[in-house]
Amino acid sequence: MLRIVSLQLLATVVVGLIAALLGGLAAMFSAILGGLCCVVPNAIMAARLFAGTKTPGGANPATFFIWEFVKIALTVALLFATATLYHDLNWLALIAGFIVALKSYIILLFRH
């Protein structure tokens, strides 16, 4: 889980650098914020699920579904907060950062 979250964070930084080269500082911050809207909820869910495996009796399947709902709600809340609070938002960079972070786990699938 840590590998996936760290790969998502690395992909977010790379997209931020590419956005900075193509669109300037506002695009860079937009891309990084878009990636973080995906990385932060995934990191919270991964940490919570990992902590659940350390309890006696192991992980509970209902916990996964509850935290998946929390992850989606947090993602939507972060995207809404980014859209309302960051006034120099570059929507293309935000969506690009979000999608690249969201799909970066595919790199790990093809690596093995």
Rank of each mutant, 00 (worst) to 15 (best):
M1Q: 05
L2Q: 07
R3C: 03
R3E: 11
I4R: 13
V5Y: 06
L9Y: 02
L9T: 03
A11L: 00
V13L: 15
V14Y: 00
A19H: 05
A19W: 08
A20G: 06
L25W: 11
F29K: 14
F29E: 13
A31S: 12
A31K: 03
I32R: 00
I32F: 10
G35W: 04
C37W: 04
V39L: 10
V40A: 10
P41W: 01
N42G: 12
I44S: 12
I44H: 07
I44F: 11
M45A: 15
A46Q: 08
A46R: 05
L49R: 10
G52N: 10
K54I: 00
K54H: 11
T55H: 08
T55R: 15
P56S: 02
P56A: 09
N60S: 14
P61M: 01
T63I: 09
T63D: 15
F64R: 04
F65W: 14
I66L: 14
I66G: 08
V70T: 14
K71T: 07
I72W: 11
A73R: 11
V76W: 14
L78C: 13
L79K: 03
F80E: 09
A81C: 04
T84P: 00
T84N: 06
L85S: 15
L85A: 15
Y86E: 03
H87Q: 15
D88Y: 01
D88L: 05
L89K: 04
N90P: 06
L92I: 13
L94V: 12
I95G: 06
I95W: 01
I99E: 06
L102F: 13
I106K: 07
I106V: 13
I107Q: 00
I107D: 02
F110V: 08
R111M: 08
